[in-house]
Amino acid sequence: MNWFQQNRLLGTFLAGFGICLLLVGLVFYWTGSKWNAARTEFDTAAAERSRLEHLDPFPSDANFRKMKVHLENYGVALDKLKEELKTRVIPLPSGLAPNEFQSRLLQVMTATSQKARETKVKLPDNFHLGFNEFITSLPNTDAAPLLGQELSQIQTLINILLDARVENVTSFQRTPLPEERGGAPGPAPTPSRGRKSAQANISGTKLLERNVVDLTFKAGPSVARKVLNQIASSPAQFYIIRTLYVRNEKDKGPPREKTAETGAAAVQSTGPNAPSNAPLNFIVGNEHVEVSARIEMLRFTF
């Protein structure tokens, strides 16, 4: 005690140093215990991972039976969906000869022209439903059934316009099929090794084909809406309106002076001395619209 009193600074330093050593020892002990627990947990997880990697996984009997039931239900639902989609597509006339297609084309052209005269719809000059080249020449044998199906699809589309009594059809263009030029889908590329081969096979399978037409017609706003709704909801053929452009025939509104005069006339016509059968003069709403659309006609290949 006398030494501590005589060497107070050194004694305080030694006491603090001893306390620090004790604290460091406690920290090392706590850290070592935690490290041992973590190492034990890691070794257990690594052993379990190694065990799972060397196992031959297979579901239990109960799960396997459930999976088979789910697969069967999925197959039934998928087949039902395919059959329902096939009813939304005009069937392919198998075995249609080139000369039969040409005869059918002439019949459809005659029927369409007659119906256009009855409904007072103006069609483009020399309107051949987009099959201009087949008026004087025959298609190849492989393309004739596909062209026959496309002819029925186009006839249904034109009938929608005629039944709605649009003002006129200004243009109609059909995108030629690859089969018309003797083209055929090229061979699928050789898949690379590994898991990409299955993905390449899936992506290379085509479930549908598209026949594309571009048409432009003029009609009133209500008639144009009716036509677009009927095309999108046609039960006979699955149509997709891919692009749509609507242009008003009047780019500018009525002049302000004319609007004021019309408003004053309307006030006078609704006065107490105005006749009851005075006609109403609408400022807007009487314009016609020009509708240009690219329409895809689907053909399912499953």
Rank of each mutant, 00 (worst) to 15 (best):
G194L: 02
R174L: 03
E290T: 08
F101E: 00
R195G: 13
K80M: 10
H70G: 09
P235G: 01
R65N: 10
Y245G: 09
T170Y: 06
L177V: 03
T87R: 11
S113N: 14
V27N: 15
I90A: 06
K252C: 11
L157Y: 05
A46T: 08
K80D: 14
V212R: 11
N286G: 13
H54V: 07
G271F: 07
R225D: 10
T270D: 13
Q5S: 10
E179Q: 11
L298P: 00
R51W: 15
V212M: 11
R117H: 11
L123E: 03
A111Y: 12
T12H: 15
Q107P: 03
E53M: 14
P254C: 02
D56F: 13
F4W: 15
L207D: 08
D56V: 12
C20K: 15
P255R: 03
V291Q: 02
L106W: 10
A236H: 06
V223F: 07
P91T: 01
A232I: 04
A111R: 12
R104W: 04
T40M: 13
V169D: 00
P178C: 06
S192G: 13
D61T: 08
A77D: 08
F238C: 03
F282L: 15
N140L: 02
K68D: 15
L146D: 00
R195P: 07
V246H: 06
G220F: 14
L157D: 02
A274T: 02
S203H: 08
A164Y: 03
F101T: 00
R294P: 01
G32Y: 00
A293M: 04
